[in-house]
């Protein structure tokens, strides 16, 4: 059988991802995680001295803490299998990427293992976040300097 012909056979046999089901699960779980986040930030606003603007930081840290617990007990990957982007896109997914790599590489020691591999999955998010923020900031700075826009 030729490669081209095999490719066709392969496309016929391989099931398409269940798009609608995946989207629905991502929406529901992602929305739910954000709603929990909303409750956490409300908690910080009511019981601590945080405002709507400053509550974001402790909320994110708390969500990452939840991610550690779920990852450690092997639950986050089960949520991830069901929810896909619904649990990958929230900051808990970022936490899961860091924490799962840390747990995995503990066997190679704290320095070479955990230290060296902590960001092996999440590193690209940090890289592209920082680089794009740099260029966006730079462009904005130039535009402000030449008087096209203001801060």
């Amino acid at each position: 059988m030729e490669k081209e012909q095999y490719k066709k056979l392969e496309q016929n046999v391989t099931p398409k991802p269940p798009y609608l089901k995946n989207v629905a699960k991502a929406f529901f779980v992602g929305g739910l995680i954000c709603t929990i986040g909303q409750a956490v930030s409300l908690f910080y606003m009511i019981f601590f001295n945080f405002t709507e603007a400053t509550a974001g930081n402790p909320t994110v840290a708390t969500m990452v803490f939840f991610a550690m617990i779920l990852t450690g007990f092997g639950l986050y990957k089960r949520i991830g299998q069901c929810a896909g982007a619904g649990s990958a896109v929230p900051v808990t997914g970022f936490g899961n990427a860091v924490i799962s790599a840390a747990i995995e590489h503990r066997s190679e020691g704290l320095v070479l293992g955990v230290g060296g591999n902590l960001f092996k999955l999440a590193g690209s998010v940090v890289l592209f976040g920082v680089v794009s923020a740099f260029f966006v900031g730079l462009i904005k700075y130039i535009l402000v300097t030449i008087g096209v826009v203001s801060w």
Binding site: V64, A67, F94, V98, I99, V114
Partner: peptide, 14 residues
């Protein structure tokens, strides 16, 4: 917040 939390909890988790 996000990054420091991930680093600290990653370490503790490990």
């Amino acid at each position: 917040a996000g990054i420091s939390a991930a680093i600290v909890f990653g370490f503790i988790g490990a």
